[in-house]
Amino acid sequence: MIFTIYGDYIRHYGNKIWIGSLIRLLKEFGHNEQSVRVSVSRMMKQGWIDSEKKGNKSYYFLTPRGLDRMEEAAVRIFKLMPNEWDKKWRMLMYSIPEDKRQIRDELRKELLWSGFGSFSNSCWISPNNLEKEVNVLIEKYEVQPYVDFFVSDYKGPQEDKSLVEKSWPLQEIEAKYQEFISTYSEQYIVHQSMIAQGQLTDAECFVERTKLVHEYRKFLFTDPGLPRELLPKVWNGHHAALLFEQYYKLLAQSASQFFEKVFEEDNDMSWKDKAYDADNHPLINE
């Protein structure tokens, strides 16, 4: 949830927040001060955020690594249309020694996050242009001696979609999207009516928008973002993306107003010129 608040709010308001403000925001979800402090401490140890002191206040901000991850996530979350495909396949193969098992496990998690599919043991593929991401991972985990990376054509004997069937559980992903649609389409209609009648407070909109983004971003770990040519003709991911966009816009203004009220009371006002940068976050003030 803290990741979601940083990604959807804080990074657009100067990327820095007083811990007291973060505690106030998380209290809206029923989290207490101790749990927030423990989570923030864990995120610091993992290298996602860092801190600085101003007087007797501690402020927390995303590290360059954290910012990169948030930017990548935002592009994927708010993307409505599939990527254009260059008909190429990216293939990463590795043979990492057993004494480096932890590195191997971390690399697998990163590959799943980036959208790679497990074609076979120690062989990961993607139709998306992920050369930059692969190079970053190879350098980050220092696995240069153990990996080989290819950009290639598939020459058969089957169709390209057969590689998808072997590498990703599309039916499971489709079912998760259907579950999301069933849950949030009903909530969208209810909240649309409540907002029209003035029955939903800014704080409640903040909670609902944050929960919406928090749930939708989970698809980053399961949906590889395949090009249209490799997807089924009817793909629930398209419908879920449109529902997410409409629901987000419904809650956006009131949710931002609540966040800004908390933020203004406790933090530096230098965020004013940054909060509504359409290039960074096209939906934030819509």
Rank of each mutant, 00 (worst) to 15 (best):
residue 252 A to L: 04
residue 175 A to H: 15
residue 176 K to I: 10
residue 150 F to H: 10
residue 189 I to F: 04
residue 179 E to R: 06
residue 189 I to L: 05
residue 208 E to T: 10
residue 69 R to Y: 04
residue 63 T to K: 07
residue 261 K to V: 00
residue 211 K to E: 08
residue 176 K to Q: 15
residue 234 V to E: 12
residue 149 F to S: 02
residue 61 F to P: 11
residue 216 Y to E: 02
residue 251 L to I: 07
residue 66 G to N: 08
residue 185 S to P: 00
residue 149 F to K: 01
residue 56 N to K: 12
residue 119 F to I: 08
residue 112 L to P: 00
residue 175 A to S: 15
residue 212 L to F: 00
residue 124 W to N: 01
residue 258 F to Q: 08
residue 38 V to A: 06
residue 88 K to E: 10
residue 50 D to F: 08
residue 191 H to D: 14
residue 9 Y to G: 06
residue 83 N to H: 06
residue 39 S to N: 10
residue 67 L to D: 03
residue 135 N to M: 13
residue 276 Y to F: 15
residue 196 A to Q: 12
residue 184 Y to A: 11
residue 85 W to L: 02
residue 222 T to C: 07
residue 208 E to D: 13
residue 247 Y to F: 13
residue 26 L to S: 11
residue 181 I to L: 13
residue 195 I to K: 01
residue 47 G to I: 04
residue 178 Q to D: 15
residue 245 E to N: 09
residue 240 A to F: 07
residue 166 K to G: 00
residue 92 L to W: 14
residue 260 E to S: 06
residue 96 I to T: 07
residue 152 S to P: 00
residue 61 F to T: 15
residue 255 A to R: 02
residue 88 K to V: 10
residue 175 A to R: 15
residue 104 R to G: 06
residue 189 I to N: 04
residue 50 D to Q: 15
residue 226 L to I: 08
residue 188 Y to I: 02
residue 257 Q to T: 08
residue 117 G to L: 00
residue 38 V to I: 12
residue 150 F to A: 10
residue 73 A to H: 03
residue 211 K to M: 05
residue 111 L to A: 01
residue 162 S to W: 11
residue 234 V to Y: 11
residue 124 W to H: 02
residue 240 A to Y: 06
residue 33 E to A: 11
residue 166 K to T: 00
residue 257 Q to F: 05
residue 262 V to D: 04
residue 268 D to V: 13
residue 31 H to S: 06
residue 245 E to L: 09
residue 86 D to P: 08
residue 62 L to P: 02
residue 77 I to A: 09
residue 200 L to D: 01
residue 129 N to F: 06
residue 75 V to F: 11
residue 50 D to T: 13
residue 126 S to F: 01
residue 29 F to Q: 10
residue 67 L to Y: 02
residue 41 S to K: 14
residue 187 Q to F: 12
residue 182 S to F: 12
residue 278 A to L: 12
residue 148 D to R: 14
residue 243 L to F: 09
residue 255 A to M: 04
residue 68 D to R: 07
residue 61 F to S: 14
residue 270 S to N: 10
residue 231 L to H: 07
residue 266 D to K: 08
residue 254 S to W: 03
